[in-house]
Design a protein around this nucleic acid. Structure first.
Length: 262
DNA sequence: CTGGGGACGGGGCCC
DNA sequence: TGGGCCCCGTCCCCA
């Protein structure tokens, strides 16, 4: 099942967040997007391109050591410490605003800050296995005191807890994995995950790059790919100012010595 | 070693 | 309340 049908909602929901994708390459004419996005037409691409250029929106790894510098997945899920979890908005909005495209989604205005603190959403990775190295304080700490009064819905499969039953049920699907690929039998927690997986079998690639016409099966991969076209990439080394298309590359750069400064 | 692509997961928002 | 959809992000692998 192509995910292409999903993107039609861009029209209705005013969430053509690919403005970001394009605006990272503001030189691209909007019509190119239309041509290359037969599925996802970008109604306001031109306007978006004019307003959301992200040249300044780069991540600064120099702030990582003081906040959060995951070196492993386990670490990422077990470090509640210096991470600024007390401010959920700082988590999502900073990360998303850095993603530049989030305007339509979070209503966060495009962040004027050229540098974003790195506080990525934590990987849960508790699918079927108690991958949590510690109690789920992360979520609790992330919640402001006001939310602490909310009832907690505990997952019976793992230590996670949620403030709403819906969220818990959604989470439980990551344990039950009800969506099974009929081709290979691989199971997924959500239908759209399965659909994306099915594309690996069908070879369907509904997301194409407006710059090189390369197509992708996954929207996130297209997003990452578009970074490669951007002159100024999202993730910047705070020491040498070098920019990278991915956080992982920036982390590698930093951990490998970063101009012999680290 | 670096850069990039493929595949995938989780939370949040909207309907 | 539940499902659909999106975004952000990570891990793995390869060139």
């Amino acid at each position: 099942m192509p995910r292409s049908f999903l993107v039609k909602k861009y029209f209705a929901k005013q969430k053509p967040n690919y403005s970001e994708l394009e605006c990272q390459n503001a030189h691209t004419a909007p019509f190119m997007l239309k041509e290359s996005y037969p599925f996802a037409e970008l109604p306001s691409a031109a306007a978006a391109a004019a307003t959301c250029l992200t040249t300044g929106l780069v991540w600064d790894l120099s702030v990582l050591p003081t906040l959060y510098l995951p070196t492993s997945q386990a670490e990422a899920t077990s470090i509640p410490g210096p991470l600024d979890l007390s401010s959920p908005s700082s988590l999502s909005s900073s990360a998303s605003s850095c993603g530049e495209e989030d305007e339509g989604r979070t209503s966060d205005p495009p962040s004027p800050e050229p540098v974003h603190t790195f506080a990525p959403r934590q990987r849960m990775k508790c699918t079927g296995v108690l991958a949590h190295s510690g109690p789920p304080e992360e979520e609790e700490e992330r919640e402001p005191p006001a939310a602490a009064a909310r009832p907690a819905f505990l997952c019976k499969h793992c230590p996670k807890e949620y403030t709403s039953l819906g969220a818990l049920k959604m989470h439980i699907r990551s344990h039950t994995l009800p969506c099974v690929c009929t081709t290979c039998g691989k199971a997924f927690s959500r239908p759209w995950l399965l659909r994306g997986h099915i594309r690996t079998h069908t070879g369907e690639r509904p997301f194409s790059c407006p710059h090189c016409n390369r197509a992708f099966a996954d929207r996130s991969n297209l997003r990452a790919h578009l970074q490669t076209h951007a002159e100024v990439k999202k993730y910047q080394c705070g020491i040498c100012s070098r920019t990278f298309s991915r956080m992982s590359l920036l982390q590698k750069h930093s951990s490998s010595g970063c101009c012999s400064a680290a």
